[in-house]
């Protein structure tokens, strides 16, 4: 199947997915399960990576800025800008594409090959709506939360790094964090994370839903989901940056 045909199938599937759920409470229950299973469960990895990323960026900046004419609070400032604008929304999304994307694709793919999707359909239920919509909605809710979380942990990591290495004083670093504060930067970051959440959850849902074959095909589709959604995340990062920041 060509790329264009696949894109067409994806759009068709999304049209089935975005329908009103048959039972509101069943949808909300599923949403809660997915939010918990994928969102809350990702806090650990997000914290770990953000902490190290923030620390490393702060150390690199301190190392780079050794010209006495450049004020030291710039270390804090650049660490903040890098975390907020790019590292937290984009790098976190790429990591979550691996974790969340493969989990969604393999879960739905397994339901496909074991005929659970057929079973839903013959009960008179819209399987795309029942299975995929809560996952997309949950992702669009917990991605921004995780990003804010990642920014906070990342900046703490930076602070910790300068405190331990003593390259910049803590006061300078905190001054930098507070310098030139632009609220729109945060919105930009959150908008990106919501768009990436949609891309990752919907592409993974699509890849799982359209599995054809057995367990080998499920594995293949989950790899494809990660690769395809990572590429789309980076492409949309560029598009959104062009749209929102220039």
């Amino acid at each position: 199947m060509g790329l264009l045909g696949e894109a067409g199938d994806y759009v068709m599937l999304m049209r089935q997915t975005f329908k009103r759920p048959d039972k509101g409470w069943v949808f909300r229950r599923q949403l809660f399960i997915d939010f918990y299973a994928l969102g809350v469960d990702s806090i650990g990895i997000v914290s770990f990576i953000s902490l190290f990323m923030g620390a490393i960026i702060a150390m690199q900046m301190a190392y780079n800025i050794d010209n006495p004419l450049v004020p030291l609070y710039l270390v804090g400032y650049t660490t903040k800008q890098m975390m907020v604008l790019e590292l937290s929304p984009t790098i976190m999304s790429l990591i979550l594409a691996g974790k969340v994307g493969s989990s969604i694709a393999s879960e739905i793919g397994t339901k496909r090959v074991t005929e659970q999707i057929d079973a839903l359909k013959v009960m008179g239920i819209n399987p795309a709506n029942y299975l995929i919509l809560p996952k997309i909605t949950a992702a669009m809710l917990y991605f921004p939360v995780l990003v804010v979380f990642s920014i906070a942990i990342g900046l703490s990591g930076g602070l910790l790094a300068v405190y331990i290495t003593g390259s910049v004083t803590v006061t300078d670093f905190i001054d930098g964090l507070q310098a030139w504060w632009v609220p729109f930067d945060i919105y930009y970051s959150l908008i990106k994370s919501v768009v990436f959440a949609f891309i990752i959850a919907s592409v993974a849902g699509f890849k799982g839903y359209t599995v054809d074959g057995g367990s080998v095909a499920v594995g293949r589709s989950s790899t494809q989901a990660v690769v395809a959604s990572s590429i789309l995340v980076i492409v949309f990062d560029l598009i959104l940056t062009q749209m929102l920041l220039t």
């Binding site: 048959d22 039972k23 069943v26 397994t110 339901k111 074991t114 005929e115 659970q116 057929d118 079973a119 013959v122 009960m123 008179g124 239920i125």
Partner: peptide
Amino acid sequence: GVLFQGGALFDSFTVEENIMFPLNMF
């Protein structure tokens, strides 16, 4: 009512929830 060759039970639900599922929906 359809019984599939492999059963096609919903793997994330218990036996009780599987049977209750169509009742919940309809």
